[in-house]
Measured scan of single mutants.
Amino acid sequence: MLYRITVRNADGEKLEIVVEMSEDEVRALAEELRKAGYEVRVEPIPEGEEP
């Protein structure tokens, strides 16, 4: 499935990426980023919607 991941650092800089991963993989990635001090938001992209 496609997911949009938005990551912000302490300075407020934002990075937005689209990935194709399983829900478990995305959850693990988000958890690791949060542990590293980043603010993370994950949104699933519905099938048929443009990323």
Rank of each mutant, 00 (worst) to 15 (best):
I17M: 10
N9C: 02
I5E: 00
E25I: 05
E32C: 15
E47I: 13
A30P: 00
R8G: 08
D24Q: 08
R8S: 10
R41P: 00
G12M: 05
E25S: 07
G37F: 05
A30T: 07
L15M: 09
E50P: 13
K35S: 05
E25L: 10
P51W: 00
R8W: 11
V18A: 02
L29Y: 15
I17N: 02
E39M: 07
R8K: 14
G37E: 01
L2H: 12
R34L: 05
R4A: 03
G48S: 14
R8F: 12
R34N: 04
Y38L: 08
N9D: 05
A28E: 05
E23P: 11
R41I: 07
A30F: 04
V26L: 04
V42D: 00
L2C: 07
Y38H: 04
I17T: 06
S22Y: 11
V18P: 01
E16D: 06
V40N: 00
Y38T: 02
Y38C: 03
L2D: 02
S22M: 13
I17F: 07
T6M: 06
P46S: 10
R8T: 12
I5K: 00
I45Q: 05
V19G: 03
G48C: 03
R41N: 15
L15Q: 14
R34Y: 04
E16G: 04
R27W: 10
K35I: 08
L2R: 13
V42W: 14
V18L: 10
R41A: 15
D24M: 12
L33W: 12
A10C: 06
A10Y: 12
L33H: 02
I45A: 04
R4N: 02
E13R: 14
K35E: 03
V42H: 02
L2A: 05
I5F: 03
R41C: 14
E31N: 11
I17R: 04
V7N: 00
E32D: 08
E50Q: 12
E16Y: 13
P46D: 09
E31P: 00
Y38R: 02
E20C: 02
T6H: 09
R27V: 08
E20R: 05
E13Y: 15
L29A: 03
V42S: 01
Y3F: 11
R41E: 13
E47S: 15
K14V: 11
R27P: 01
E39S: 10
V19D: 01
A30G: 04
P46Q: 14
V26P: 00
V19C: 04
A28L: 13
R41V: 05
V7M: 13
S22N: 07
G48W: 12
G37H: 03
A36T: 11
E16P: 02
V42L: 05
E23T: 07
R27K: 09
V19K: 04
E43N: 07
G12P: 01
M21D: 01
I17E: 02
E47H: 15
D24P: 09
V42C: 04
I45Y: 12
I17H: 03
M21W: 05
D11Y: 13
K14A: 09
I17Q: 03
R27E: 12
V7A: 13
A10V: 07
L2Q: 12
A36Q: 11
E43P: 00
E20H: 11
E49Q: 10
L2E: 04
R34F: 07
M21H: 02
G12D: 04
R34V: 10
R41M: 09
D11M: 13
E50M: 11
L33K: 01
A30K: 04
L29E: 01
E31G: 09
E50V: 10
Y3A: 02
M21Q: 02
A28N: 11
E32H: 15
R27M: 08
